[in-house]
Design a protein around this nucleic acid. Sequence first.
DNA 1: AACCAGGAGGAAT
DNA 2: ATTCCTCATGGT
Length: 303
Amino acid sequence: MENGETMIEKVIHIEGPYNFDSVLDRLNMDPLNVVNIDERWVKIPVHIQNEPLVVKVQAIGETENPSFIVFCKSHIDIAVEKVSDYLQWNISLSDIHKHFEKTDLREMFEDFRGTPLILDFGLYTCLIRCLIHQQLNMSFAMTLTRRFAESYGEQIDGVLFFPKPKVIANLDVEDLRALQFSTRKAEYVIDISRKINSGELDLESLREMSDEDITAQLVKMRGIGNWTVGCFLLFGLGRQNLFPLADIGIQNALKIMYGLDEKPSFAQMECYNKGWSPYLSYASLYLWRSIEKKTKKNKGLEN
DNA sequence: AACCAGGAGGAAT
DNA sequence: ATTCCTCATGGT
């Protein structure tokens, strides 16, 4: 991109509302992502025919009339397809906003209008990130993820590509313990990587399956519980009707929203969310958004 | 300085 | 089928 090699580019228009600045804001919370808030772009690591390729996406439109320029060195059409999936450009947020106008999340959806669900950059990436995030505060979870990616990933054109299953499959528990993983978490991550590497677990094949079938299959594996499958379905596959009951963030958001003295029970949560189906994932997303703290970096950019 | 974190597994009921 | 305990370590 900066090295003089020829770039191909393509302009994409999509249906609004779609607030790309909120996307950049979220991506920017993860130090692994290469984001420029002022110039409104992000560089996304994709694999095309097993070859790594950096794709830069820059916004040139606004929330109600969103458009982008996509830049990369080759395979522009496949690259656009990939980033369309990751950034969920094919999902109509106007329908979803219409649905929530009739619910008690109305204000929240107005406040964050056009905030799309975005996916992790790859299914393996998503699954491992979910595993690492289990029971950890966001800050430490990011630290662990960063150490993991920097230690075993690959840096290409200034973008860090997430480690491949093959590399992690060959590690010992001690290697991840050295990064301050717990022994258990290290075992989970390595075991699952080995299963993927050996072909015993094929994440791509899950794309065709129902949420229920995927859950049944994944929960059997050591280290993957309901919460992790929920996150995988949501941030890996972009399934629209997930509501992670066990998630402390959702619980805290509901507690604040309804002015509860304690975190809500599962039964209460099921009761609140009745009207939000079949877009529970978006309810979850906006609830998370409602309690997100801004990073120091973003605070500095306000006003 | 306790208590909690965008949980999960295993043992003890 | 539930309830309780442990795991590692950083944040608050």
